[in-house]
Design a protein around this nucleic acid. Structure first.
Length: 298
DNA sequence: TCGCAGGTGGTCG
DNA sequence: CGACCACCTGCG
């Protein structure tokens, strides 16, 4: 069970619950012991974060342990995991700059002080956020797992580990590559229960094969099934476009509540975010999103 | 039962 | 352009 692992000491500005729970990813599960198991980078791993100083909220330094569940070489993959968690970026600087913008943002930053914006695989991000549209999180997760199970590549695991993953609702499989998906039909995808989104996924796979993988927001937006919101999420979470400020129903709510916008005024919100947050828009979006989701849970 | 959930594409005025 | 509206599905 406990495979090879790496530890990184003195990691700052990281809270796995906030990072995996702020809506940017769908294949991570929190275990009863507080660690997180997930599938990313075509690997199955467990991550644990233990604060190393007095627990003064999120953001303080701690020790990160990443354990391979699939027999993969986590040491060799060390840089890839650090990059995935965006650990090469100075979030102290990001948070400092945003906190100085206005007191409401400072409050949101404090609430989500351990959020990091993951650098996820672009194609997986495209699939995930196309599925996410007009949908709810439990069903999004189910669709993603069923899609991986139906058409993805198997990640080799021992029996016990595989059973444990399945118990968490995770299929030990990658998401299908464009080549595989492009060869499928809506009928093939029926067991995934994507609803009308099935044709978007197929169209996107074919468009990617034809035009190459998108490398910018505009190229993502040109895909069938990606409007401004979905393309914004893909640009932010899959392309590292940190200025991207995707606006969904929750962002409309929080922008109305915090800044007094009319909830229908999406264009006003976009312009406001661009002017006020600039290249930090993506971080601002995550702090605000986490802020409103947390508050509405209570 | 019916509206809603991380919207988009299509159609009108 | 901006304002509708249909759309798969599962849950409260």
């Amino acid at each position: 069970m406990a495979g090879q692992s790496i530890t990184i000491d003195g990691v700052r500005d990281l809270d796995l619950t906030q990072t995996f729970g702020c809506g940017q990813c769908f294949r991570w599960r929190r275990l009863p012991d507080g660690s997180w198991t997930g599938i990313a980078l075509a690997r199955a791993v467990n991550m644990r974060f233990e604060p190393q100083k007095a627990p003064a909220g999120s953001g303080g330094p701690g020790r990160l342990t990443i354990t391979a569940l699939d027999g993969s070489d986590v040491r060799r993959d060390r840089e890839r995991w650090l990059s995935y968690l965006d650990l090469y970026r100075d979030y102290g600087a990001v948070k400092g700059a945003l906190s100085g913008v206005d007191p409401r943002m400072a409050e949101a930053v404090e609430a989500g002080a351990g959020i990091r914006i993951l650098r996820q695989d672009i194609w997986e991000t495209i699939l995930s956020f196309m599925i996410s549209q007009n949908n709810n999180i439990p069903r999004i997760r189910g669709c993603i797992e069923r899609l991986a199970g139906l058409a993805g590549c198997r990640i080799p695991l021992d029996q016990g580990t595989e059973a444990a993953l399945r118990a968490e609702g995770l299929e030990p499989c990658t998401l299908p590559e464009p080549e595989v998906l492009a060869g499928m039909s809506c009928a093939d995808l029926e067991p995934v229960h994507l609803g009308y989104r099935d044709r978007y996924l197929l169209a996107a796979a074919r468009e990617v094969l034809e035009r190459g993988m998108p490398e910018s927001y505009d190229e993502v937006l040109a895909l069938t099934g990606a409007g401004p919101k979905v393309a914004g999420c893909i640009a932010l979470f899959g392309l590292g476009e940190t200025a991207s400020f995707p606006i969904d129903v929750w962002m409309r709510r929080v922008m109305a509540e915090v800044y007094g916008f009319d909830e229908r005024d999406v264009k006003g919100m976009r312009d406001f975010a661009a002017a006020r947050y600039g290249r930090l828009g993506g971080f601002a979006q995550q702090y605000l999103y986490y802020f409103i989701r947390e508050k509405s849970q209570k």
